[in-house]
Design a protein around this nucleic acid. Structure first.
Lengths: 159, 159
DNA sequence: TTAAATGCAAAGCATTTGCACAATA
DNA sequence: TATTGTGCAAATGCTTTGCATTTAA
C-alpha cells in the first residue's frame, strides 16, 4: 500500500472528509518528480479536475501540513514547495542564483548521526520529532565564477 | 574585532558603499537576541535612524545575503528571519503552532558528523559550501496535547 | 563629480478570508 | 440532514520596482 493511501485513511480516521480535491492534491504531490509549489499543484489538479479553487489548495495544504502528511519547504524564494513527508531530505541551496539541488545521500557517508541525534532529541526535549531537514548553503559551480561587485550586480539582476 | 565589523570591510572591499543604513541594518541583526524578520529590522533601525525605508531594508538584506554575510531562514511562516551567517544553526520547528526553538548543540552529542560531511561534499560536488542548517520538525510540548480534528480545527485557528 | 544608494509610492504576487452554495458521511 | 468543504472574489500582507533625489567616495 502506497504511503499516500495510508494518508487517506489518516484523514478519515480523524474525521475529515475525503473529498476528490483532497485526494487529487495529495496524489499530485506524491506522484510529482520534484517538489511542487502551490501554483504547480493547482495546475496539476486542474488538468484532470477543473473545478478546483486556489484557496482550496492552500487550505488543503494547511491541513495536510498540520497532520504531518506533507512538509512545506521554503528555499528563500518567497513561497513554499511541498512534498509527502519523507524520512528526511537534503539540499544544496545556492545563495546566489537560488538553485536547489537535491543530493543523493549515498554520494557520501551516511547521515546516521543525524538520525541518531533525532532519536536522542525526541526523548530529551519534550519535542516530538517527525522529520528533519538538512540544507547546505553555498555557491553552485556556475555561480562560483561570477564576480560580486556593484557594477555587475545590476546587470546580472542582482547576481 | 567583531564579525559584524569584518563584514563592513567586506562591503567596502567589494566596492559597495558603506551607508549608515547598511551599517545599522547589519548591526541590528548582529546584536539581536533572536532572529529578526524584515519588519523587526526596520523597526529596530528606525528607532535610532528614522529616515529609512522598508525597501532599503529589503534591498540591503538581499545584498547581504548574496555576499554570504547574512542568512535568510524560512520557517514556513511566509516570510524570512535573518541572522549573521553563523557556523551553523539548528532549530526545532513545530508543525502545528509554528514555534521555533533553537536548541543548544551541547544538549546532546555534537554534530561533528555534519561538519565532516560538509567538508567532504564541498570537495566532491563542485558546490562551495558556506554554511548549513539542520532543522527538526515535529510537535512542541504544548501542541502534543492538542487534538487535531475538524471541530477543533476551526476554533483553534487551524491548530 | 559620478555611480551607487535611498525614500516614497505604486505595482506585483502569494496567501487568507467571508460568504453562499455544494457535498460527504 | 448536519457539518464540513468548496469556489469565487475581495481583502491582506509581504516583497519588488520605477523614478526623482541624495550621498559616499
Amino acid at each position: 500500500m502506497h504511503r499516500v493511501d495510508e494518508y487517506f485513511k489518516k484523514l478519515k480516521s480523524k474525521g475529515f472528509k475525503l473529498t476528490p480535491q483532497r485526494v487529487r492534491i495529495l496524489k499530485a504531490i506524491g506522484l510529482a518528480e520534484g517538489h511542487l509549489d502551490v501554483w504547480e499543484i493547482y495546475q496539476s489538479v486542474n488538468r484532470e479536475y477543473p473545478p478546483i479553487g486556489l484557496a482550496t489548495v492552500y487550505r488543503t495544504l494547511d491541513l495536510l501540513k498540520k497532520l504531518g502528511v506533507v512538509n512545506g519547504l521554503g528555499f528563500g524564494e518567497g513561497h513554499q514547495h511541498y512534498e509527502i513527508s519523507p524520512e528526511h531530505h537534503h539540499h544544496l541551496v545556492c545563495l546566489k542564483c537560488g538553485s536547489i539541488e537535491e543530493f543523493d545521500e549515498q554520494v557520501v557517508a551516511k547521515l546516521e548521526a543525524v538520525d541518531k541525534l533525532e532519536k536522542e532529541l525526541s526523548g530529551k526535549l519534550g519535542f516530538k520529532i517527525i522529520d528533519h531537514q538538512l540544507e547546505f548553503y553555498g555557491y553552485c559551480s556556475k555561480c562560483r565564477k561570477i564576480q560580486t561587485d556593484p557594477k555587475d550586480f545590476k546587470e546580472q539582476g542582482g547576481l
